[in-house]
Structure formats: structure tokens, C-alpha cells
Design a protein around this nucleic acid. Structure first.
Lengths: 225, 225
DNA sequence: CCAGGATGATTGAATTCCACTCGGTGACGA
DNA sequence: TCGTCACCGAGTGGAATTCAATCATCCTGG
């Protein structure tokens, strides 16, 4: 499996929440237009001041159109989140392709860089991120983290010969949670991201994973088996 | 300063948001009754499906009564949050008093234990925790984490001679964010808390702080100065 | 190639829901 | 018995959501 595997096969399923899958092309544009509008509005008025009317107006559509595609207000925000996640994965793949990877650490570093990049460039990403334990079934967020951890695990196993298994997946999940929290904190006040927290995030991740997958730890594993 | 300092002096100010300080006794019961109701409702229907009507009905009061004490819907949730934080601090102090502390690690461990205990016993704590970047002025959440980090820093400096300063506070803030994320994850699906994540939280905290405040690190600091 | 029916897409006034107000009614204390 | 304090719940306004009517596009038989 190549690095591209990170993208996942369910890119289409990301829009699960839409009421009706669009048949004609114009409606595909409507869909993304609605999300663009939602992203813009979120950035402008904030997460909880958003109204469906604002989204519709910004997208040049009527209220009814919003409800044609999404069952309710929060579903729109969920979809926005999903799209952000998909773009995040794409960004990770791009980053991975653009750098020469000498160890698993480079891969992890790419993930952090991608995350930071999206926080900075993607409208609405700051508000509706991995961390949305807030709105509705946050089960999604956990599922996302889990899915992502598994994908990343595949890559690390295949490219850098890390020992596969549930343990690796669990640790990556832990790493994702920590990284998410620290990066969210970094961007909480500072729109460009507080570098102290970003740097500390990298440090924490490296230390944590080094404990299990650093040179010494791997040697121990090798001798033991 | 004793360990009790963690409690803070502003325990009374936690209810700042009430419109009218209750004069007669019966209304004190109403106040906590409203919060109990809010906590129960939060646990049942989730954070953003709460309605003021639900809270009032559950508390056996009328809508008007809710608004007699709280200026708006989110104020109720804030008050609930504040109460949870106060109870958390109290629990930390209790834990600290009940154990023999031989190093700063024991203090950190107590904090984790208190957090886990509250997650298990306090209705609504799961939803409205430190991490509520969600609704409304999320600046509060960060302020909380920061405030708590400072208090904890005071204790660690005074009881265990850790080097005071902004660096310590920053690292404790990082630690708080990570712990919050991992514990939230632990309770996300499992109401009793996934022990794997709880254990990993303790491990991560210890490793992270050991890096700076472990025996070796402290010796280095001592020789350097 | 084209009518014209079938189905997808859009609309926005009407409806429902919900946060919040306020004038009226009881309950407590002195 | 009077003056507050506490409480109630119908009423108001605005936002969320519905739905029947209308328009656009596709498709098919002639």
C-alpha cells in the first residue's frame, strides 16, 4: 500500500449526511457552494451566530435549497467538517510526497505541518476541527481520529517497518488526540498559531513515539524476538 | 501557601452570572436545583439540544424562574461548568490530603484521579469540561486551563521546589491540555472511562514533565546555576 | 431532431420551535 | 397587614424547518 492509501476509499461517503445525492452537475456546485458559504460565514460571525438564512444568502440560494441537501443546521457544519478532514488528508499526502522521508518521524512531522497549514489557510477549519466534541454526535470525531490513526499506521508499518498491530494503532490514536488538543490550543487565540504550542506539540509527539518506536526501543524489540 | 490554594479565592464569584443573589433560603435550593436539572438534561439530550424549557420542567420550575436567575441559556451552562470546576478543585484538594506525597508526581497523579472521579460521578461533567471550545466565549476555557495551571504551579513550586517561572506554567498548561484531551477521549464512548487512555494519560504526563523536572533534569538545573 | 412527459432542483411564504420578556399572583418576613 | 421576594406562564420575536408550487433538465418515442 502506498502513501496514497491515507486518502481512504470513502471520500464519497464523507457527504453521507446529504439528504439527496445530486444527480445533475449544477447541484454538485450548489453543494460545495453551500459549504463555501458556510465556511465564510463561520469565519465572519463565529460558530454559534450562524443562521441558515446567512448561509443561503451567501451562497446565492434560498433557504429551501439548504434543506434540500442537509437535514438541519448542524448537518451543514458537520459536512463542512468532513470536507475539511478530506482536504487535510489530501494535504498530508501532498506533504509526504514533497519531502524525503528518512524516518517515521518525518511522516509524523508532515502530518503536523499539514494540520498547521490547513488551520492557517482553510476558512472555517479553525472553528470546526477534529475537536468538535461540542455539536451533536461527536462520535464522528472519534471515528475520524481512529480511521486516520489506522491509515497512518499502515503507512508507518509499510514504509518504516514499524511493528504492526493494535498497540501501534492505539498509540497513534493517543498521539492524534494530543496533537489535536495542542494545535487547537495554539490557534485558539492566535490566528497564525502560537508557535510555542506548535513546537511543543512536535516535541511531545516525538518523545511519546520515541518511547516505543525510537532506535533503542526498536532494537530491544528486535533482540527480544 | 498550602495545597488548599488550589481552591482559589473566587469560589463565591463562580456564580457571578446570576441575575439576583437569592435572599430567601428556598431560592438557594432552586439555584442548585436548576443546575442539577441542567446537568441531567445535558447528559440525556446532549449539549446543543438543550432547551430552557427542558431545564425548567426537569427542575419543577417555570421558564420564568430560569430567567430570574440566569440572563440567558448559555449562562446556565456556564454556571454548571463553574460548579463542576469548583467541585473538581475541591476533589483535588481532598485527594491531595488523603495521600502521602513523596514527589511532585504524586500531586499530578492526584489531579488525574480527581478528574477521572468527577467524570464518573458528576452528571454533565462529561459534556461541559475544561475543553468547551464549543459554544459561546470559549476564551473562558483557556482562561480556566491557564488559571488552573498557575495554581498547580504554585503548589509544585512551594511543596516540591520545582523552579518557578513562566516555563513551568506553560508546561503545565500543555500538560492540562493533553490530559484533558486524553481523558475526554477515555470517557467518550465508555461511561466508566477506557482504562487504556487513562493509564496512557498518566504515562504521558509523567514522561513529559520528567523531561523537564525529573531527577536528572533537576540535577542539571542545579549544577548549571 | 423534437415534442412533451418525468424527474430533479429551486423557491419562499407558512409553520413550528425556542429563547427570552413581563405583567400579574402568590408567599414570606416584619 | 404591608412590602418585598419569588414564581408563574401566556405572549413576542426571530430563527429553524416544511412543503406545495414552479422552473430546469433529462429522456424517450415518434
Amino acid at each position: 500500500m502506498s502513501l496514497g492509501g491515507l486518502l481512504g476509499e470513502e471520500t464519497g461517503a464523507a457527504l453521507q449526511q446529504v439528504r439527496t445525492e445530486p444527480i445533475q452537475q449544477r447541484s454538485a456546485a450548489r453543494l460545495s457552494g453551500l459549504l463555501d458559504a458556510a465556511a465564510a460565514v463561520v469565519d465572519e460571525v463565529g460558530f454559534d451566530r450562524i443562521t441558515t438564512a446567512m448561509i443561503a444568502e451567501r451562497a446565492g440560494a434560498s433557504i429551501g435549497t439548504v434543506y434540500r441537501y442537509y437535514p438541519d443546521r448542524v448537518a451543514v457544519l458537520h459536512a463542512l467538517h468532513e470536507r475539511a478532514v478530506v482536504r487535510f488528508r489530501q494535504r498530508v499526502v501532498d506533504e509526504l510526497g514533497a519531502s524525503t522521508l528518512t524516518s517515521w518521524w518525518d511522516a509524523v512531522d508532515c502530518v503536523v505541518t499539514a494540520f498547521v497549514g490547513l488551520y492557517r489557510s482553510e476558512p472555517g477549519f479553525r472553528i470546526v476541527n477534529f475537536d468538535d466534541r461540542d455539536a451533536a454526535p461527536a462520535a464522528d470525531a472519534v471515528a475520524d481520529a481512529d480511521f486516520f490513526a489506522r491509515r497512518l499506521a499502515d503507512v508507518l508499518v509499510n514504509e518504516f517497518d514499524l511493528p504492526a498491530g493494535e498497540a501501534l494503532i492505539f498509540r497513534l490514536e493517543v498521539a492524534v488526540e494530543m496533537a489535536d488538543a495542542l494545535l487547537a490550543r495554539a490557534f485558539h487565540t492566535d490566528p497564525l498559531g502560537d508557535e510555542r504550542f506548535i513546537a511543543e506539540c512536535r516535541l511531545v509527539l516525538r518523545d511519546y513515539l520515541d518511547r516505543f518506536y525510537g532506535p533503542q526501543a526498536l532494537n530491544l524489540l528486535a533482540t527480544a524476538s
